[in-house]
């Protein structure tokens, strides 16, 4: 695939043909293993589900080689699937917005500390992110369970128990908890690059604090906000562990349906699952492009 190659440092010398050939061989050797792996075990699997999405599901969970568009039609007409898309996108949106609202002030506070404190505080935000996602979700199970920590505390002070686990609220808390560091880091990076004297300039020119923030600081830190939002939004919408453990069977997200279509339901329906996964990827891509377009417009 690589026909022209030249080391970056040196200018390509046309007279040294053997050298060029050797460089080409070297490049091929460097590139081949990774390219092979990514094409065979990443790109090809995506092609396989694209293929499956147009095939007919068989009665025993097998796949029948008959072309059909039924899978896509089912996705867009059956309430179960349409609702799952809408709910997942909605939960993703709420999680992203809440993360944004709580991460921005936190990042701002960290930036304004002295360098030594800054590193420590940032590190403290990172530690939970380095721990296993399952473990973090499980921690919320013990806190929110019917005989869990919060309910024990409520009872101790004489208040009635509350149903906290297996609710949409529990799923949201789990998701926000899991994704928060992804929002703090990019926002921190862009606030750190922000020149605070610009706020002084804005207020010297008569802008109120709120106006100075909205018209100067927010637009200039938008790249961090945009990056953080995408980093939070993508994994949130595709979740199935958090919604499974904290939402019970009550809060069905796309991930839960996908998991069931591929492994649990009787019989499994891989063609429909494949179509669902692909449409999900497409919807996500469109949402992200749309988001980046609107945020960069605000930039100007």
């Amino acid at each position: 695939m690589a026909t022209e190659s030249a080391p970056l440092g040196q200018a390509p010398n046309s007279s040294l043909d053997t050298l060029a050939r050797r460089e080409r061989g070297r490049l091929f050797g460097l590139l081949f293993p990774g390219l092979f792996w990514l094409i065979v075990f990443f790109a090809l699997p995506l092609v396989v589900i694209l293929l499956y999405s147009f095939l007919t599901p068989g009665p025993t969970g097998n796949v029948i080689w008959k072309f059909t568009l039924d899978n896509y039609i089912t996705l867009f007409t059956k309430d179960l699937y349409v609702n799952a898309y809408v709910r997942s996108l909605w939960i993703g949106l709420v999680t992203t917005v809440v993360c944004l609202l709580i991460a921005y002030p936190l990042a701002l506070y960290i930036v304004q500390r002295s360098p030594r404190w800054r590193n420590l505080l940032l590190f403290l935000v990172l530690i939970p992110f380095w721990t296993n996602f399952l473990v973090r979700t499980y921690a919320w199970m013990i806190i929110l369970a019917n005989n869990g920590v919060i309910n024990s505390l409520l009872q101790a002070v004489g208040l009635p128990r509350q149903t906290l686990l297996n609710t949409t609220g529990a799923v949201l808390v789990g998701l926000i908890y899991g994704e928060l560091p992804f929002m703090v880091l990019p926002i921190y990076a862009s606030i750190d690059r922000f020149d605070f004297t610009l706020l002084e300039a804005a207020s010297d020119l008569g802008a109120s604090r709120a106006r100075a923030f909205l018209r100067v600081m927010l637009p200039l830190t938008m790249p961090g906000v945009a990056a953080g939002s995408v980093l939070v939004f993508i994994p949130t919408v595709g979740q199935f562990v958090v919604s499974d453990l904290l939402g019970g069977a009550k809060v069905d997200m796309l991930g839960n349906l996908l998991q069931r279509l591929f492994t649990r339901s009787n019989p499994p329906n891989w063609p429909l699952g494949s179509a669902m996964a692909l449409v999900f990827m497409l919807v996500l891509t469109v949402a992200i492009i749309f988001y980046f377009r609107t945020t960069t417009e605000e930039d100007r």
């Binding site: 699997p45 994994p235 919408v237 494949s274 996964a277 990827m281």
Partner: peptide, 19 residues
């Protein structure tokens, strides 16, 4: 592979291996 939802990649691999 970094930006794609993990579950899509996982299901694609499952389908690929079976296939």
């Amino acid at each position: 592979p970094i930006v794609i939802p993990e579950i899509v990649m996982a299901l694609a691999l499952l389908a690929f291996f079976a296939f």
